[in-house]
Simulated scan of single mutants.
Amino acid sequence: MSALLSVKGLTALRGECPVVDDVSVTIGAGECVGLIGPNGAGKTTFMRAALGLMPSKGTSTLADLSAAARARSVAWLPQARDIAWPMTVETVVALGRIPHLPRGAKLRPEDRAAVDTALAEMDLTSFAGRLANQLSGGEQARVLIARALAQQTPLLMVDEPIAGLDPAHQIGTMQSFASLAAQGKSVVVSLHDLGLAARHCTRILMLSQGRLVADGAPAEVLTSDLLNKVFGIKVFYENTDQGPVFQPTEITYR
């Protein structure tokens, strides 16, 4: 299995406190990896450190790349969702093609095709000519996801991309990520909806207090014992004819 990301001993500090503590993991091709953990577990810091966007100890294959090479290897979507400038949706999505273009070059037919595909994937084709900064928060989030998809990199790293989306677009976005994995690309997606993680991810990484406490298939990670220990919850989890159904039901730490 070819590695799209390999980190060893990754540690990131806030002052003297490790926010990510000695994490080692390899992401291969064809994976949809759900990154889960309570608030403050280190999910965002892990992704930023792995990308080389903040100081850290240990090694990361992405952090060692030049900015240009990294932009062709991985598309990064942070939590920030606001689009400040009055650009059309199509123009924002087309920014995802910049890593593949010579400086100052115009979009080629293959670039326009990538933009059109990303717009359709995020249900935005009819929005192409609208100003992105005048859309709702959830619609802007979909525009930025489309921009990342248009980048067409082997690896996509996205931080809570479905936060604020309506249920249909949450499901559709996760289906898009699963489809990328089926095509041989990989996605690392942090999310709090454990039900969507159970249904659409091929692998789950669970962080707690900055440490990687579980790594495996959803059924191996989303166990009653781990969920009680890490999240302080009880859950209903059953495999059905329509796929796994997973629903947190009760808080256990009060």
Rank of each mutant, 00 (worst) to 15 (best):
M1R: 12
L5V: 05
K8R: 12
K8Y: 02
L10T: 04
A12G: 07
L13Y: 15
R14P: 03
G15C: 11
E16M: 08
C17G: 01
P18R: 14
D21Y: 12
V23S: 11
S24P: 03
T26D: 11
T26C: 11
I27A: 11
A29P: 03
C32Q: 07
L35I: 09
I36A: 11
P38D: 11
N39T: 14
G40M: 06
G42R: 00
G42T: 10
R48K: 15
A50L: 01
L51S: 04
L51D: 01
K57G: 12
T59I: 06
D64L: 03
S66P: 06
A67T: 14
A68I: 10
A68E: 15
R70T: 05
A71P: 05
R72H: 04
A75T: 01
L77G: 00
P78D: 12
P78N: 10
A84R: 14
W85S: 12
P86R: 12
M87A: 15
T88K: 14
T88H: 13
V89A: 00
E90I: 03
V92M: 13
V93C: 09
A94E: 01
A94Y: 01
G96K: 04
R97A: 01
P102S: 07
P102Q: 14
G104E: 06
D111H: 13
R112S: 11
A118N: 04
E121L: 12
M122Q: 11
D123V: 10
L124R: 02
S126L: 15
F127M: 11
A128W: 01
G129D: 13
R130H: 13
R130T: 05
R130W: 08
R130M: 04
L131Y: 14
A132N: 03
S136R: 14
S136L: 07
G138F: 05
R142E: 02
V143P: 00
L144D: 00
R147D: 04
A148E: 05
A150L: 06
Q152A: 14
Q152I: 01
L156I: 12
L156F: 13
L156C: 07
M157S: 12
V158D: 05
L165S: 01
P167Q: 12
A168K: 08
I171H: 14
T173N: 06
S176A: 15
F177E: 02
A181L: 10
Q183T: 09
K185V: 02
S186A: 13
V187H: 03
V187T: 11
S190H: 12
L194E: 00
H200Q: 14
M206S: 03
R211C: 13
A214W: 05
D215W: 05
D215C: 09
E220N: 08
V221E: 00
V221G: 00
T223E: 09
T223L: 06
N228H: 13
V230N: 08
F231S: 07
G232A: 10
G232K: 11
G232V: 06
G232P: 06
I233Q: 06
I233P: 02
K234Q: 14
V235D: 02
F236G: 11
E238F: 04
T240D: 00
T240H: 03
T240G: 02
D241E: 09
D241K: 10
Q242T: 04
G243Q: 08
P244G: 09
P244I: 03
P248I: 09
T252F: 08
Y253A: 13
R254V: 10
